[in-house]
Amino acid sequence: MSAAAGQLSELGHTRVQSARAGAQQSRWSHMLYVAPFLFLYVTLLVYPLFAGFWLSLHKADFFGGSRFVGLENFVRLSNDKVFIGAVGNTFYFILLTVPALAIIGLGLALALNRTTRTAAFLRGVFFSSSVLSVTIVTLLWKVVFAPDGGFLANLFEAFGKQPVAFLSDADLALPAIAITTIWWCIGLPMMLFLAALQQVPRELYEAAALDNAGRWKTLWNVTLPSIRRTFALVVIIEVVLQFQLFGQAYLMTQGGPNNASRPLVLFIFEVGFTRWDVGYAVAAGQILFGLIAIAAMAQYFVARRKEAF
């Protein structure tokens, strides 16, 4: 749930200025405040990233064996149908989930942006699934999707229809995982939009009301433009989050059928821990890093260009 790279868009506004120029001397001792974090940051994030570059040039396993192979792992990746499929699945999954999360989240926020008790209760309902852990979420949805005695299967049968086997159909497996994910993650975007809606100046609505603008017109002309930045933020957060799809696929389909639901992260996990091909897995990890970095940067620039207007 780290909303991490999300706030990258704000990077543009962030220039560390001296708190009060001249009033303070630059001292090494001041570094003590940032040192504890920097220590962990360097040892647990920066070092592994760079060590990973080096390791990805090796054939290696967990048990000390290692041999330099140059770029072989990357050449292999470029020819690996399963890997390429996994990258494709990851993008497809983002396409399935992110727009839905943003739009449904916005819709819910609009509908529930009021002070009644019912609205408060419903907000609670929609956020509640976010606090469940992935294992529980997948367990619940497996018994919803199961073609034998699953919730949907029973429903289908009650209407005299043949149950659909969502998780063992190559076309439906990833969408089924996407539905599970949307159900699980819808709380966060809704909350972010709610917060943004409460920031919209009341005067704008009052002016719209004076103009006798209808519901849709107000939405289109007042509300949406005011929360543009939040919309971008939500999209960025969700793209980064959904890029990292792992648990749902691992627990619901193991990437099948026919590799149709294997995301990139599951590929890395399997190659590393099942096949012990650590160098190869780390090379795939570098690709993941590259893709996320590109996505984050692209969005940063897009967000920045919008700011210019």
């Binding site: 199961a146 073609p147 034998d148 005695g149 086997a165 063992s168 159909d169």
Partner: peptide
């Protein structure tokens, strides 16, 4: 039979 996992 089709579409059954191990438990099913």
């Amino acid at each position: 039979t089709k579409n059954q996992d191990y438990a099913a």
